[in-house]
Simulated assay, not measured.
Amino acid sequence: MPRTEVSTAVIVIDMINTYDHADADLLLPSARKVVPAIADLLNAARAARVPVVYANDNFGQWRSHHGEIVDAALAGPHAELVEPILPDGDALFVVKARHSIFYETPLAYLLWELGVHHVILCGQVTEQCVLYSALDAHIRHLDVTVVSDAVASIHPELANAALEMMRRNMGACVARGEDVVFAM
Rank of each mutant, 00 (worst) to 15 (best):
M15A: 01
N17V: 00
Y19N: 05
D20A: 14
D23A: 15
A24I: 04
A24H: 03
L26A: 15
L27A: 15
L28G: 02
L28C: 03
S30L: 10
S30N: 13
R32A: 15
R32V: 04
K33W: 01
A37P: 06
A37E: 13
I38A: 07
L41K: 07
L42C: 12
A44L: 08
A45C: 08
R46Q: 14
R46E: 09
R46C: 06
A47D: 13
A48S: 12
A48P: 11
V50K: 02
P51S: 14
V52W: 02
V53H: 06
V53R: 06
A55V: 15
N56A: 15
D57P: 05
D57G: 09
N58P: 07
N58G: 14
N58E: 08
G60W: 02
W62L: 11
R63K: 06
S64I: 14
H66N: 05
V70G: 00
D71M: 10
D71V: 11
L74W: 05
A75W: 11
G76W: 07
E80R: 05
V82K: 03
E83D: 10
E83V: 11
E83N: 07
E83F: 01
P84G: 01
I85H: 04
L86C: 08
P87W: 00
P87C: 10
P87D: 05
P87K: 06
D88P: 02
D88H: 03
D88G: 12
G89F: 08
D90A: 13
D90K: 04
A91D: 09
F93V: 11
F93N: 09
V94S: 08
V95N: 00
V95R: 04
A97V: 09
A97W: 14
A97Y: 11
H99R: 12
S100E: 00
S100T: 06
F102I: 04
Y103R: 11
Y103P: 03
E104S: 15
E104C: 12
P106W: 02
P106A: 03
A108T: 00
Y109M: 02
Y109S: 05
L111D: 03
G115L: 05
V116P: 01
H118L: 00
V119K: 01
V119Y: 05
V119N: 10
L121A: 04
G123F: 04
Q124A: 14
V125G: 04
V125N: 10
V125Q: 13
T126W: 09
T126H: 07
E127T: 11
E127Q: 14
E127A: 09
E127I: 12
Q128M: 02
S133C: 00
